[in-house]
Design a protein around this nucleic acid. Structure first.
Lengths: 287, 287
DNA sequence: CTAATAGTGTCTGTTAGACACTATCTA
DNA sequence: TAGATAGTGTCTAACAGACACTATTAG
């Protein structure tokens, strides 16, 4: 039996009368934060904005969602268009930013995705790709001071080849029920800045990465298939922002690795090459 | 000096020429999952849909975002309109669902918020509020079987007063880089169902709750200011879906509690009343 | 040989799980 | 006293942090 609503309409009639244009609606975009690790540095991909608003500022790659496409499709399409990168080992939704006044064009709600790839998947990592204006930035978030109530950190994005420095001071304050993050662009330490509220997303992504790296195998989404314990430790330290005890780190990380038997070449003792034990693949991301 | 884009426009000119209606755009809604604990049961608030689509099905409270209002404002307004509840001890964004075909009206992207409140904050928790058609459902997610690759669970929503049963089978499969959750409505065990894809959000909320309850003080957002160890343990067990060792639980939880010195009345030995140590407030939610 | 890199061993205090036990109240 | 509820004590294996140590290579 067909259901009718309080106005006596069937579903079909209701849909026929439905007018999406009755109220003014926001526009929707997707953005992606793409991390990798190269030579012991954690890196993030940014694109220089070529048009208004925020022209000349650095932004996460992204763009408008097409009406018929799923959000995941949209973000993958945008990234491919802007950077010709199409392989990820990790890909998940991070957060949706939707404050009414976050963009001067109109109300724009953006959903940000967090993804990672080993640097081997990337063409032109360090070569310039001028037409696209996409660049990899070293990223670090280091705690300056920490109290019961909160923490003050320095979040810096740097591209050494082109001498670009973007630096923000972040205050993470533990409120009663959540952590409130406030960020301030440090004009004196920077010669460029991030577009709109993108620092919020990047800061959040760093926190997510940090908080999961110790308890999961998430780190291996950033590393090549075969790597040395030193490479793994360097990547780990780049993510958490400080050094750890080598003996303890090796003791613990080896539990989720397989020794390939292969060795590296180089100065000093040759290092063994390890693989992430596929038995623990589920640890690369659970939740 | 004023910046101009590749068409020679200043920001002002660009904004003047900007037409948000050039492409068809989705509509945006917000929804809220509100949890509480009452008499040792974890409960979630659902609203019976009175209009198409999904008429008669149970849904999270929520609705369309007004053009000028922030998303958080929108979800708080909607909840107040639908249930006259306005106090939370926890409130954060959970996930944005935006598949192109998730609603028959038009493309609707919804951002879901997760919130909690002690049952004392709620008027009419169990009294009927027929005009609004909002009801509290006991919620449980219990693992049926578990292998290396994944887990099969039963997620059930039940309102005993009105004999409403909504039951889904959830398969959480650990893929290479993420957990894929598939849900199936169990017609035989149910006499009602959830609207649209709301089971996805509710399942995700249960997983978030479960995964954080052991390592944080998130549980105390659901409990009254003063409570007994037994109440805390019951709430804990309701969230994780199975029993734990009483001795060990007490030993560990006491570390974040203060003994008020007060005692309960009742049959058997009187129980001490504890408070969450405000020193650990930041543990109620960090990140 | 030295410098450089890779890698190991051991001690200690803390924690998590298992489980047997005692205490206080009402009727 | 029985039945009900609240609460404690103890053993053990695993783990995390600190830190001192050994191994293998190039030049």
């Amino acid at each position: 039996m067909e259901k009718i609503n309080e106005y006596g309409e069937t579903l079909e009639q209701f849909l026929k009368n439905y007018d999406e244009n009755k109220y003014r609606r926001p526009s929707n975009t997707v953005d992606m934060i793409l991390f990798t690790v190269y030579e012991g540095n954690l890196k993030v991909l940014l694109v220089k904005r070529k048009n208004h608003p925020f022209i000349g500022d650095w932004a996460m790659p992204g763009g408008f969602i097409e009406f018929e496409e799923d959000m995941e499709q949209a973000v993958l399409r945008e990234l491919k268009e802007e950077t010709s990168i199409s392989k990820y080992t990790y890909f998940r939704q991070l957060y949706t930013f939707g404050n009414a006044d976050r963009d001067p064009r109109t109300r724009i709600i953006t959903t940000v995705y967090l993804s990672m790839t080993p640097s081997g998947n990337i063409k032109n990592t360090h070569a310039s790709d001028d037409a696209k204006d996409a660049r990899w930035f070293n990223i670090s978030k280091k705690t300056i001071s920490s109290t019961q109530k909160g923490r003050k950190s320095l979040l810096c994005l740097e591209n050494d080849q082109e001498d670009i420095h973007i630096c923000y001071e972040i205050k993470d304050n533990a409120k009663r029920n959540y952590v409130e993050s406030k960020s301030k662009w440090l004009e004196k330490k920077s010669n460029a800045m991030l577009a709109a509220d993108h620092i919020k997303a990047i800061n959040m992504a760093m926190d997510v990465l940090k908080s999961r790296v110790a308890s999961t195998g998430i780190l291996f989404n950033l590393l090549p298939n075969e790597c040395t314990l030193r490479q793994i430790q360097d990547a780990y330290e780049a993510v958490i922002g400080h050094k750890v005890d080598t003996g303890n780190f090796r003791r613990d990380i080896k539990k989720m690795l397989i020794d390939t038997g292969k060795k590296t070449k180089g100065i000093g003792k040759r290092a063994s090459l390890y693989q992430f034990n596929p038995m623990y693949d589920f640890l690369k991301e659970n939740l």
